[in-house]
Nucleic acid binder design. Structure first.
Lengths: 261, 261
DNA sequence: CTCCCAGAATGGTCCTACCAAATTATGTGT
DNA sequence: ACACATAATTTGGTAGGACCATTCTGGGAG
């Protein structure tokens, strides 16, 4: 029984270097694609042999932090959409093919995801995050005025993704990104549905505004409430429209059937 | 007679050694726990330097094929390979396992996802759904009593997926499945973390029980609350443990750094 | 038979050196 | 002045050697 010594993940020099390099990356504010100092330079400035330094680099490489190639090791993209797009879109793709009610399923998922996004965005958003969200909000209004449904759908997705970005949760952002990517083709259709109801955009815009305000104010609970309200409204509206359309379709079917006699 | 670039994603010597070692393991029929030849012996018999040989071994270690420790490298448990065979080859699996903070991100997503799952499961679950959930709950308890951490992790995932099934939302189920599929390799590690705190399983089990009861009773709000409580508890517990470990790591780093002078 | 200890073996780290490829600097021609 | 080919330098990849701390192993003492 050795409660003091838990299973040591990185007991050696390489582990220390691994953390040191990550610290160094953050201190120097190295962005994606920037080149890391050479192995020789790093090994000298960190006081370790090039062997151990190389081992640390390899660990960082397998973790996806850096991409190590001849001519210079560079910073890799942080926590990519690589995995989610494959693991989520692939098994999901079959459902997109003409599955009614699919939209409602997605909205239920969005209700959970975006509530969390809004909540943590309110807690963690930095000024530049707020700025990005507001910019997306304005873009959305512009696209609506121009009457470009496709662009508006894209702007709508961008707005919600900006909130996900502000939550500073790579997984959340990745999942939501996959979801929107999957829906992009059908979102404009949803918008068409939405705007069949009078004064819809005004209400959507008000909800978006409330969401932005809550995040800006740092009120996490209000942000989650605003997000939930928004998604619920969209879900309810689409549900009503679908029912209405189904009613008309039945009526049409009935009429043509009767006239066929 | 340089063998012209075979279509391997690892064009270097280490890649060749990696495959050679796996071949050697199979040829000799080495079982789990058996000791691999020493690094010096391997490097000589495979015609490569010990550096490259060590790199190959480290790759096999990160893939879970071998466990490399002082005194002799041994064949690792292929237990996980059965269900993570596809994802283990996926370069993202080690990325998931090695990124601190990733777990917290995932838990934030799960909080939103599973809250929705529990909510709608309470509303829509049919008798056979309830039965499936209860069966998973019992399995989880059995696995815990047997002390099989890997099986317990699997049972835990199955339990939560059963709830997602009961929500009758294909998208929700798909997203959660993708999430668990990626995490399964590291869930047992999380369980190890969790159980470092006394009486953890009892509390987890109580929370699971409350969740099952709420869903059975058809109380959607109580189900969501139970789910949120559960995930929050897991997140908080893991957070505490990670902080404790980080504290020890920092102390260790400081000590070794000072002694280096 | 058990227990303990010295020596052998092993992984961990460090060092120097060389090579091929990539990068950067340099020169050259238009 | 600009574009392009060429040389010089840098960089990661590999090799081989050495030493240390820990672990394993085998034989002797009790």
């Amino acid at each position: 029984m050795t409660p003091t010594r838990i299973s040591t993940p990185t007991p050696g020099v390489a582990g220390r270097l691994e953390q040191a390099i990550e610290t160094l990356i953050e201190e120097r504010g190295l962005a994606v694609g920037d080149r890391l100092p050479s192995e020789r330079a790093l090994s000298e400035m960190l006081g370790a042999s090039r062997n151990s330094l190389r081992e640390a680099l390899m660990r960082l490489a397998t973790r996806g932090r850096v991409t190590i190639r001849k001519g210079g090791t560079v910073i890799a993209e942080p926590a990519e959409n690589r995995w989610t797009h494959k693991t989520i879109n692939d098994p999901l793709a079959p459902f997109v093919a003409g599955n009614p009610g699919f939209g409602q399923d997605v909205l239920e998922v969005r209700l959970g995801l975006e509530g969390q996004a809004a909540y943590h965005a309110a807690l963690r958003a930095e000024p530049r995050d707020i700025e990005a969200i507001r910019r997306c909000f304005d873009d959305l209004a512009d696209c609506h005025e121009k009457g470009d449904a496709a662009a508006e759908a894209h702007a709508d997705a961008a707005f919600h993704l900006a909130i996900a970005d502000a939550s500073h949760n790579a997984v959340l952002r990745s999942v939501m990104s996959s979801m929107f990517g999957l829906l992009q083709s059908s979102i404009s259709q949803s918008l068409d549905k939405l705007y069949m109801v009078p004064r819809t955009f005004e209400r959507l815009s008000q909800q978006h505004q409330a969401l932005v305000d809550a995040i800006t104010a740092g009120d996490a609970l209000a942000a989650r409430l605003a997000s939930d309200t928004h998604i619920e409204f969209v879900a309810e509206t689409i549900r009503i429209i679908d029912e209405e359309r189904a009613r008309r379709a039945r009526a049409e079917t009935l009429r043509t059937t009767l006239s066929r006699t």
